[in-house]
Design a protein around this nucleic acid. Structure first.
Length: 447
DNA sequence: ACGTTACCCGTG
DNA sequence: ACGGGTAACG
């Protein structure tokens, strides 16, 4: 009866409010996760819930497998047979480090949600239905190529194209059986191809034949530019090519300079550049503006739609971006991702409520974006600006008591992230919590 | 300078 | 026609 942790998995305490794999891994940030249904016969885990899916991603040297329950993330990695048994333990520790980095677990998402809710009534109404939507910290090269594919395209096809890239331009790393009784016995996993694999001139025609359309040339030429500028010799330790390493150094660059570098590539305009800045280069304030975001800004944030519903141009792009940034503050790009996800067709059952259904949620100001009324939410540890006091009071009045309790629990469990890994049971976890790790400094997003 | 247009290819 | 756009024109 079995409060079991699935075989071979390690548990990491993590509330759903901090991360929802189901939402984050298919909301159009990364296009490369396998999402595999688990049989319903699967046993409940420690907290009593039953994970419905297993998520898998192929990295350079391993496949990471994840499952999630109400208050834990389960992970394990699978290595090629060539990896010696005795090094497996060390490598599993690397996977934990990778998870922390990739999901940016040092950033307290629940605290960000609180801040956005205070500053933005629209967000406040959404927050409960869209818990745990955070920004991934992706590999810049993969991110860049993926979003070159995204132009004038949809998530389903982008996913197919990315998969095709991996299958055709990167050797298989390993194969794994599917977790459930599917028709297929197993799936073969390929890492994302390195720049040198996509750079040869003949790649362009091949990609066209694979259905990439006009993006085929963009991909090949961008890869060729990277290889031409930085070479191809792989770093023995990181398994990265020099141009991949160089892309990572853009993280240390200011946003405008990093953006300028990205705009040099073919197939990379403002929107794609901003996606890469936000999703893999740590530029958390950047808001990529597409047609969806534009519509959201008009419908819910009083952006003047006077300037024709027509084509997006640089001026309009900046207007939308500036407007939304003024509402959401330092982590505006992260907030944007929550709104964007809530507006996706695949999340249609949770669409943003339109004005008539909830009149009180519509910003009462027409479009006057008085800078004074847009509090900075730079760091959640900072004081709530006095200008929001009125709204805050109104909100707390609506707030059911249960919610407060839940928030406390969440905050309380966060410090455990700093502890570890080991596979321990619910009983043990409760003990730890009672022992009261004084939740001292709430983890600061600014850190 | 800014506003238009063509571009691959799958869907509704 | 339109999709999470971009490059190449007038």
């Amino acid at each position: 009866m079995s409060m079991a942790i699935p075989m071979g998995f390690h548990a990491l305490p993590l509330p759903l409010a901090q991360l929802s794999l189901a939402a984050v891994l298919k909301c159009g940030q990364s296009f490369r996760w396998s999402i595999l249904p688990l049989p319903t016969s699967e046993l409940p885990v420690a907290d009593g819930s039953v994970p419905a899916h297993e998520y898998r991603l192929c990295l350079r040297d391993r496949v990471v497998c994840l499952r999630q329950s109400r208050d834990a993330l389960f992970y394990r990695s699978v290595f090629p047979a060539s990896v010696p048994e005795e090094s497996l333990e060390t490598k599993e520790a690397e996977t934990l480090a990778w998870i922390r980095d990739y999901f940016q677990l040092d950033i307290d998402l629940a605290e960000l949600y609180r801040q956005w809710s205070l500053a933005d009534p629209v967000f406040h109404r959404l927050q409960d239905r869209f818990e745990g939507i955070r920004m991934l910290r992706q590999d810049p090269f993969e991110n860049l190529i993926s979003f070159i594919c995204s132009s004038n395209n949809n998530i389903a096809r982008i996913t197919k194209m990315v998969k095709s890239l991996c299958q055709h331009y990167s050797p298989p790393l390993l194969s794994l059986p599917l977790p459930s009784g599917s028709t297929l016995p197993e799936e073969t996993y390929h890492p994302f191809p390195p720049p040198s694999a996509l750079a040869p001139p003949e790649v362009s025609a091949k990609l066209r034949s694979l259905g990439f359309g006009y993006r085929a040339d963009f991909i090949q030429r961008t890869a060729a530019m990277l290889v031409g500028a930085h070479g191809v010799s792989r770093h023995p330790k990181t398994l990265m090519e020099p141009s991949e390493e160089w892309l990572i150094t853009l993280r240390n660059m200011a946003t405008p300079e990093a953006r300028a570098e990205l705009l040099k590539f073919v197939g990379v305009g403002r929107k794609v550049a901003d996606c890469v800045l936000l999703m893999s280069l740590d530029k958390r304030e950047v808001i990529p503006v597409d047609t969806h975001v534009h519509q959201i800004a008009i419908k819910h944030y009083g952006l003047k739609s006077a300037s024709k519903t027509a084509n997006m141009n640089p001026k309009l792009y900046d207007e939308v971006s500036t407007k939304l940034a003024s509402v959401w503050g330092d982590y505006a790009g992260w907030a944007h991702s929550v709104l964007f996800t809530s507006d996706l067709k695949s999340f249609a059952s949770y669409r943003i409520a339109s004005t008539p259904a909830s009149p009180s949620l519509t910003p009462d100001r027409p479009s006057s974006s008085s800078p004074a009324s847009t509090p900075s939410i730079s760091t959640p540890t900072s004081e709530t600006p006095t200008t929001t006091t009125k709204r805050k009071r109104a909100l707390s009045a609506e707030k059911p008591p249960a919610r407060t309790a839940r928030l406390v629990e969440i905050a309380d469990s966060l410090p455990e992230l700093a502890i570890a890994e080991s596979t321990y049971s619910l009983a043990e976890r409760v003990k730890r919590r009672r022992r009261g790790a004084p939740s001292s400094q709430p983890l600061s997003p600014a850190a």
